[in-house]
Design a protein around this nucleic acid. Sequence first.
DNA 1: TCGGTTTCAGAAACCGATACCAGAAACCGA
DNA 2: TCGGTTTCTGGTATCGGTTTCTGAAACCGA
Lengths: 327, 327
Amino acid sequence: MAGVSKTTVSRITSGNFEYVTEETKAKVLKIIKELDYKPNALAQSLKHMKTNVVGILLSNLQNPFWATVLEGVEDTCRSHGYSLIICNSNEESQIEADHIEVLRTKQVDGIIVNPTMKNKLLYESLVNKKYPIVAINRKVDGVPIETVAVDNVKGSMLAIQHLLSLGKRKIAIIIYQPDGISPRLERIEGYKNELINNGVKVDDDFIHIVEDKKGSAKERVRKILLDPNRPDAIFSTNNMMTLEILEEIKAIGLKVPDDIALVGYDETVWSQHLDPPLTTVKQPAYQMGEIATESLIALINAKGIRQSHTTLLEPSLIVRRSCGSKI
Amino acid sequence: MAGVSKTTVSRITSGNFEYVTEETKAKVLKIIKELDYKPNALAQSLKHMKTNVVGILLSNLQNPFWATVLEGVEDTCRSHGYSLIICNSNEESQIEADHIEVLRTKQVDGIIVNPTMKNKLLYESLVNKKYPIVAINRKVDGVPIETVAVDNVKGSMLAIQHLLSLGKRKIAIIIYQPDGISPRLERIEGYKNELINNGVKVDDDFIHIVEDKKGSAKERVRKILLDPNRPDAIFSTNNMMTLEILEEIKAIGLKVPDDIALVGYDETVWSQHLDPPLTTVKQPAYQMGEIATESLIALINAKGIRQSHTTLLEPSLIVRRSCGSKI
DNA sequence: TCGGTTTCAGAAACCGATACCAGAAACCGA
DNA sequence: TCGGTTTCTGGTATCGGTTTCTGAAACCGA
């Protein structure tokens, strides 16, 4: 159209003005503007073997914890010029594997994954192939994969410590089936640790493992509350679970914190407005997203060759009235 | 590697076994498996002029309303074999325009956008170029763009009707600056409509337009509550805003609903657990995501040539105790 | 046995860019 | 004026696939 070769156009669009006359440059730029011409990123990516796209695999967008993580990831991607493909595994390993395959054929430069833990061989083979991949939130035992997670033993201990300090001794924990998922295992570990550290006997009847699906916590908490040996505190290890528990406590006609104390895991903007305002373990979600993305990009730039490393972030406790604290 | 041409391999990977011996096929499939070979989607897309990727532009991932919309979009994309690139405009027009440009150069097959409304010319030019694009949640006046939205006049009227039925007459509305954004304009319209329909005079002092940023509603609500002519009900037109309002009402020491009634816009899983349980206008968020995606894919399949159409979904009212209803 | 059809497989063009190399024109010093 | 360098531009291969075309071999009926 401008009567020049595509080589010349390429030199101009790529900002490499080396050896191009001002005159030709102006002529071509004018036509570029007229046509609203944009280079095809697909062709560029094919040539450069780089897409500037990363993928993220999450399990639950509804949980504000993940929405916040995602925001950290998105912001960091943007500031580094990456686009983000988001995939929802719904905690199902087959969907996770499918998504990873699609992302790889789409040649994304790297993947951040909240692993379901049921595809360990897959994660391992990716790491071995020097494919940039970062695990977020969950540690994958035995696989040398770059990881960004929060110290869940610590988080759990903070919650239990708080309950103990308020005189609670019959502390129940409700948690989804661990299934090898590190945060869940660690939260149970922290729960036991802190009880033992304080000379309180761990009573297995107070450890409630429920199915990881909507409504299962609600059902279980009903039994817990109607049991003659009712606990004086419940440690709820998940955001969404906490709502079910609250609902059931109210349905039965009990009061938090007078009849039973409650600590939740994951701070949200709603926590302070619940009835009663909820004491929670807060995790640095946005920061986790940021760090995971930075790690991934570093891994991409290192072409996957980099000593794998685990970053462990610190949780904190937000004290409100749901445990009976006078603050 | 298999000693055959790439043509033959292509025939096999694309499932077009026409005129390929069982023998060669088996040989090639074996090697494909050994190498864990996956065709490069970039090259396929370049050839086919189709990426099977769509982009979505949102303004706020933290708001569960959008998280739910996103889930509807993601699920629908997945079931149609599309991947989803997510972009956050943060309600800024320049970022929105930048994202749209990147998405286009990345050759995404179509875009779903919650438009900031400050790039009308851009939306229009895309529609004119037959580029598949769907507006979600907000109507773009004067641009023939495919749109999926909720009836906000109706939503507003439901809320006000409820307050009126409970005897409230001094009803304040707090809303972010409309700036030409249809849901905001419509919510004000619905507010006025319903008051007028019921013979209640519209008092402009009760219409509170605040800046669209964190904390602005909080500041304003303080003034409202301390005013001698304090309203007996507040209609909060945004999820996040509602939390600020609740916080400030409590800070001042007033009670909901005894001292003042409150209706919120957008139902969330938290609404029923707030103190008090919140009456809200519920929007079919997931469905909106689904429909928008279906529309976009239809548009893609029609190569952008299709009569633009607006789908209007129905909101509903979830009655709880925050307005004094005895239910 | 021969011509025609069918079956199989590869060569080449193409998608839209970039990179490398080659060649022409301008420039410059001897 | 001439050879050598510098400046500018284009041709061609390439990324990794798909598609179209072409040709060889096998098959088949007369």
